[in-house]
């Protein structure tokens, strides 16, 4: 007999946790300067733009729990803290982005397409 198990809010929160999970702390700043701190998962994978000979790039995408940030708009800022090892070695420096696309998966998570600020 199959047993269905669903991810709970707590499961998702643990997934995004910046200490024990995969998350990084970030600050969302809206157009009217309202700031909200939340945990995100930042993907920044290599991307080759295929015009002509091609140009190397990356595609930054931020994932977070939709309930943490119900109001978000194009052009808002997302300031992401540095990503460090437990010894404090910086693997990826703090970086600021502008939000270019908002993609809600309608299952509790939102994906933001980002541009370097």
């Amino acid at each position: 007999m199959s047993i269905y198990e669903f991810e709970t809010e707590l499961d998702m929160a643990a997934y995004y946790d910046s200490t024990t999970g995969h998350g990084r702390s970030a600050t969302h700043i809206s157009a009217n300067n309202t700031s909200t701190v939340l945990n995100i998962i930042l993907n920044n994978e290599f991307l080759e733009l295929d015009e002509g000979a091609g140009v190397e790039s990356t595609q930054p995408m931020a994932y977070f729990q939709s309930t943490l940030l119900p109001s978000i708009s194009y052009g808002d800022q997302l300031q992401v803290t540095a990503y460090k090892t437990v010894e404090g070695l910086v693997l990826s420096p703090a970086i600021n982005f502008l939000i270019r696309s908002i993609q809600a998966d309608r299952k509790g998570n939102t994906v933001l397409e980002l541009e370097a600020a």
Partner: peptide
């Protein structure tokens, strides 16, 4: 002239 919005910065490309 063409433009590409993919990636961390836009790309403008002309031939």
């Amino acid at each position: 002239i063409d433009f590409n919005s993919d990636g961390d910065e836009p790309l403008a490309f002309a031939t």
